[in-house]
Design a protein around this nucleic acid. Structure first.
Length: 772
DNA sequence: GTCCAACAAGTTTTT
DNA sequence: CTTGTTGGAC
């Protein structure tokens, strides 16, 4: 026990040893939040306040759940068995698997990932002859997910205009179709689970009683449905509610765009009458100047719960700020600095280059590649999302639940079996007519198409029959062969990588059955064997005895069903970790939760960061600022910020002024770095004319001529150039984007960032040149 | 049924 | 500029 609590600072200790009541822990960046969470669990158990099975810990990502479990196992000598640690989706999946009848789902229901969901919606629109110009599939998908995140079914959505009414109607049709196919999307997993508990009193009370302590990580990222789910699960409003221990940081809320509601933190404080609010403000990650920058920046946000990070580490180095002329030069400068860092002994994987949007990575990657510096870009295609892996999974899905139309369509003609669009259309008509799945409609088909489709069904059925007694890895192996996919890719020129990925699936299955406790040789198809001896019997609403959904998964699902869930819920790593010690490149979003010795925040320009589209959203700028806050607080020892005067974006050169965030940072913590050569800016700057002739390959034309006129106009008067930074009395700092007219008529289009784009008469407007 | 050309769109992301 | 999607031609 002493071991457990020793080394905690006073706030951490207070949080860990709070009484069994609801509590809100405001955990700043790098304040030891995961440590508090895991130590709290260990402390609760070691002091005998609760057994492992009375604890539920909820996270957003599998990574966080895994991390928590690992650290807990290191802390606790005893087994964590019976403890529920997982993502919202993972836990809901487990509950729905156990109580599938009560949730009105087939035992082998399958989970649609976003891709599957979108293709299903497209199919739905086509089947109902809906104009997808007027009702885009993506919009409908957003509408449906949004409604579900609010806990609303199709009949409950507010419809204030004809378009919304149509969307709501399609939402209903979509849900019907999902039910027919026995599939659920991600949001449905949560909503269905919520409804199950809401409507089934015995089940609800059972779990409410069981989980006396519920701990939630990254609480600021919860959406409304997740909050409602937690409320219900914790028995809020009942006689004996459980203790909800919420850990979060309102300043790091960066997922509003996907439904996260920071307001849940205040709501939680209010709804649960939280008396225990503890702020963890001691930072163990960054040096002083870095924290000063973070603190001052975020103080510009209104509506904060309020928090200031402090450190014992000393001030450290100032934040280095670099202004580049172009994105290429920005990249080159970063590479030079990276080389210096590496020479000074910084490990490559302790250096991160962050950017606001993925499009920015290309130029930097290119420069890194040219310099021969190994790097790793986050956020590529994940393993289970690759086409060939998804195809293999589709065969497995059909074996477990043949009514999954998405899976059916994905592989019915892959590899090619001569089943074309016409045959598929006929099959879809038949399925609609008889109200059955595509698979079930195959017997109604006649002629050549009927024969071919029958052949496909036969592959599925006979494989299922042959693999009756086989283990999951063996089943995967046989399926890869029987589907003809290996053969197909073997004949393809560049199919070798794909074959390797498919082979890996056997390995993934092996690893999965071992880790989940199924045993290597458990028949993949067989139902849960341990069911009888696991968990506590619960009586459901119909008075029927069912089992408590206790860990591990092996108790409630067949290995195959479990593996398919796993494939949907955990997309796997992006690309194999090639080159261990590599520089890390990622968006600011994906950097959340990580830390590095040295961090570059790049592209700090108005329109990019803060992003231009944030201006349109409510609280959009505040969220951009939080994003910047997250970026800054990733750095341990050294932080760089860069911006450029011009940047190539979508095939066009854009001229932006530096980010407004620079004005919100403490001057004394910034070190502005002058370009190496004073004349560099002008030397590298293309004039408007140069630019035009360059683009046109030197062959003069009207455009080049026009551009030349402009530059001449600029050459007259005070000699303004496109791309130049100026200062205006009223509008502040801006960049000349374009110049029109000549002589006294010359007007300039100037991007003032905050104040927007202005057209100013050069002979009237009082402009001053800025900087070098 | 496959392939290629034309076209459109283009923050952020996990489950 | 790039990437993905779609439609038409063979």
């Amino acid at each position: 026990m002493q071991n457990l609590l020793h080394n905690l600072n006073p706030e951490q200790l207070a949080a860990v040893t709070l009484p069994a009541q609801s509590a809100l822990i405001l955990a700043g960046a790098g304040s030891g939040k995961t440590r508090v969470l895991t130590t709290r669990i260990a402390w609760l158990i070691q002091t005998g306040q609760i057994g492992p099975s009375g604890i539920m810990a909820v996270t957003f990502t599998n990574k966080a759940a895994k991390e928590m479990l690992t650290r807990l196992s290191a802390m606790l000598p005893m087994s964590t068995r019976g403890m529920w640690i997982g993502t919202f989706h993972g836990l809901c999946n487990r509950l729905l698997r156990t109580h599938y009848r009560d949730a009105a789902l087939p035992q082998t229901f399958q989970i649609l990932d976003s891709q599957d969901q979108l293709s299903m919606i497209k199919r739905l629109l086509k089947a109902n002859n809906i104009d997808d110009e007027k009702y885009p599939a993506k919009d409908l998908m957003y509408f449906i997910n949004n409604a579900k995140d609010q806990g609303l079914r199709s009949g409950e959505v507010e419809t204030y205009d004809p378009i919304t009414r149509k969307f709501a109607e399609l939402y209903g049709l979509y849900d019907d179709q999902c039910q027919k196919e026995g599939v659920v999307d991600f949001a449905e997993l949560l909503l269905r689970c919520y409804e199950l508990l809401l409507r089934n009193q015995p089940l609800r009370e059972h779990y409410q009683t069981r989980f006396q302590h519920i701990l939630v990580d990254e609480f600021q990222d919860t959406n409304n449905l997740q909050y409602a789910w937690l409320k219900l699960m914790s028995g809020h409003g009942t006689g004996r509610p459980s203790a909800l221990f919420a850990v979060g940081d309102d300043d790091q809320s960066i997922y509003a765009f996907r439904g996260a509601n920071v307001g849940n933190m205040q709501a939680f404080e209010r709804d649960f009458r939280v008396e225990n609010l503890i702020k963890l403000e001691q930072n163990y990650r960054s040096h002083g100047h870095i924290l000063d920058a973070a603190n001052l920046l975020i103080s510009n946000n209104a509506k904060r719960l309020g928090k200031n990070l402090r450190t014992d580490a000393g001030q450290g180095e100032q934040v280095r700020v670099y202004e580049a002329s172009t994105d290429l030069e920005e990249a080159q400068w970063i590479i030079d600095e990276v080389k210096n860092l590496i020479n000074d002994g910084t490990k490559r994987d302790e250096i991160a280059v962050l950017y606001r949007s993925n499009a920015q990575s290309r130029v930097i990657e290119h420069a890194l590649f040219a310099a021969g510096i190994p790097y790793h870009v986050y956020g590529g295609l994940r393993y289970f999302q690759r086409a060939e892996v998804k195809n293999a999974i589709a065969y497995l899905q059909l074996m477990d639940n043949p009514h999954n139309d998405s899976a059916f369509l994905r592989v019915v003609n892959f590899p090619a079996r001569g089943i074309g669009a016409r045959s598929i259309e006929q099959l879809q008509d038949a399925a609609r007519m008889y109200g059955v799945s595509l698979y079930a409609a195959v017997p109604y088909m006649t002629g050549r198409a009927g024969g071919l489709l029958g052949g496909f069904v036969k592959i599925i059925e006979s494989t299922r029959f042959e693999t009756q007694q086989l283990s999951l890895p063996e089943l995967v192996r046989v399926t890869l062969d029987a589907s003809g996919m290996l053969q197909h890719y073997a004949n393809e020129k560049e199919g070798q990588d794909r074959i390797e990925n498919l082979e890996q699936l056997v390995g993934a299955a092996t690893q999965f059955v071992q880790e989940e406790g199924f045993g290597l040789s458990a028949p993949a198809h067989l139902g849960p064997q341990a069911l009888a001896q696991a968990g506590t019997p619960v009586v459901n609403a119909d008075g029927i005895e069912v089992m408590d959904a206790d860990a591990p998964l092996a108790t409630v699902m067949s290995p195959l069903s479990a593996f398919l869930s796993h494939a949907s819920l955990e997309a796997g790593d992006a690309q194999a970790q090639a080159g261990q010690d590599a520089l890390q490149m990622m968006t600011v979003h994906s950097a959340k939760g990580l830390e590095f010795d040295a961090v570059f925040i790049t592209g700090l320009e108005e329109g990019l960061f803060p992003h231009e589209s944030s201006a349109r959203e409510n609280d959009g700028l505040d969220e951009e600022r939080r994003l910047m806050y997250v970026a800054i607080t990733r750095a341990k020892k050294r932080l760089y910020m860069t911006f450029t005067q011009s940047r190539m974006l979508h095939g066009q050169t854009r001229y932006n002024i530096k980010s407004r965030f620079f004005e919100e940072l403490p001057e004394e913590s910034l070190k502005w770095i002058t370009p190496r050569v004073q004349s560099h800016w002008f030397a590298n700057k293309k004039t408007a004319w140069d630019d035009a002739s360059f683009r046109e390959g030197g062959t003069d034309n009207a455009l080049a001529k026009q551009m030349k006129t402009k530059s001449l106009a600029a050459a007259g008067g005070p000699g303004w150039r496109i791309g130049e930074s100026v200062m205006h009395g009223k509008f502040g700092e801006g960049v000349i984007v374009n110049i029109e007219g000549s002589g006294t008529n010359a007007r300039a289009q100037i991007n003032f960032g905050k104040s927007g784009m202005k057209m100013l008469d050069l002979s009237i407007a009082k402009l001053e040149r800025v900087g070098r």
